[in-house]
Design a protein around this nucleic acid. Structure first.
Lengths: 188, 188
DNA sequence: TTCATTATTTAACAAATGTAAAAGGATACC
DNA sequence: GGTATCCTTTTACATTTGTTAAATAATGAA
């Protein structure tokens, strides 16, 4: 739980008791490359923290697999809109690599909020940070060309291009694989 | 304050005392069409609630005015990324129509959080809702064509097309005015 | 290793969107 | 009311991106 502890402490002040309360509703799980962590159509009842590996959130648009987002070590992953509304998500989560994941039970987490303000605040920080991330992503998609978006990804998250299949990168950037290939060809 | 009261109560349980504490840090302001409510470059220290009128968040990309978002009556408006990070925003806020706005002082609001959990929770709801909105907007931009995005706006927020100049709508949809005009021409 | 499968690139053509400029419309101000 | 300004549409052409299909490269399993 070391990595998770450090991450949580970096967000908000947390006592040992608070941390232990969180650990009690947390489970270590492992997935193999390609495993489905959460199926499309289910309501999101877990918040994931990546110890090792890579997860992606995806969905199907007219039968085509679309990558909404991906995360690496020391990041949280959840289908926020489902977690917060308690409604089924049209998105799924998949392991892009063999992964070691901490799985936090969110119904129990929300119960903890009622008795422990420290915990509530820490997890609100996570939501806030996801929100800020989302605002920046929107700006990128709204007004940068596909080439600019690729460059930006290359600069800010270059490991993504090394660790994630390009077909996932393409849909993440909102373009086709062919288009991404053309952009990459210019770079040489 | 009626509209704001109703809105807040719809989000979370709030006592009269809590509501009054919020009102104490809230100010009624009016703007004329075209007025700048918040300048680009300033740190966001207010959360706005629209009693009457319309606000838009915008920024400049290579000298071109881009509309990031707009809101009408009974909605909150803020540059979330600046409000939460306390850093200057590269975006501004403008009144699209003559508007009557309630302006909530956020540094004081954050102080209230420390003493009043009800208030903290109510405003976290606002952030959560903005976050969900943002997720859906991203999905729309990432994988719908410009035509689909226009149709969607038409169906979900048709008043926007009536009340907001099309040049603002175009950049909001991530396309040029010319392109929007072409899409609209097909609809006749 | 070898073969089958999957991922990536390339090519050719079609469709969508951008750019620049001009023409109409609508609006605001004197 | 008239004029200037701003908004919207249209046109013509350039560029980007999508689609389909094929070729090449990389990967994984027997």
């Amino acid at each position: 739980m070391d990595q998770l502890t450090q991450k949580l402490k970096s967000l908000s002040k947390l006592s040992e008791d608070s941390l232990n309360a969180i650990f009690e509703i947390t489970q270590l799980v492992t997935f193999k490359k390609g495993d489905v962590v959460q199926e499309i159509g289910k309501t999101c009842k877990n918040l994931y923290f990546i110890n090792q590996g890579c997860l992606r959130i995806f969905y199907l648009k007219d039968g085509t697999d679309i990558t909404e987002s991906f995360e690496f070590e020391n990041s949280f992953v959840a289908r926020g809109e489902s977690l917060l509304t308690m409604k089924p998500s049209n998105k799924g989560i998949e392991a892009v690599e063999n992964s070691e994941i901490l799985q936090i039970n969110t119904p129990k987490l929300f119960e903890l909020f009622e008795k422990n303000l420290q915990i509530e605040r820490a997890f609100h920080r996570i939501i806030e940070q996801s929100y800020i991330q989302q605002i920046n992503r929107l700006e990128s998609l709204q007004f940068h060309t596909a080439e600019e978006r690729y460059k930006q990804l290359f600069e800010e998250k270059s490991e993504a291009i090394l660790r994630i299949p390009l077909k996932f990168i393409a849909s993440y950037l909102g373009i086709t694989q062919v288009s991404l290939s053309r952009i990459r060809a210019q770079f040489k």
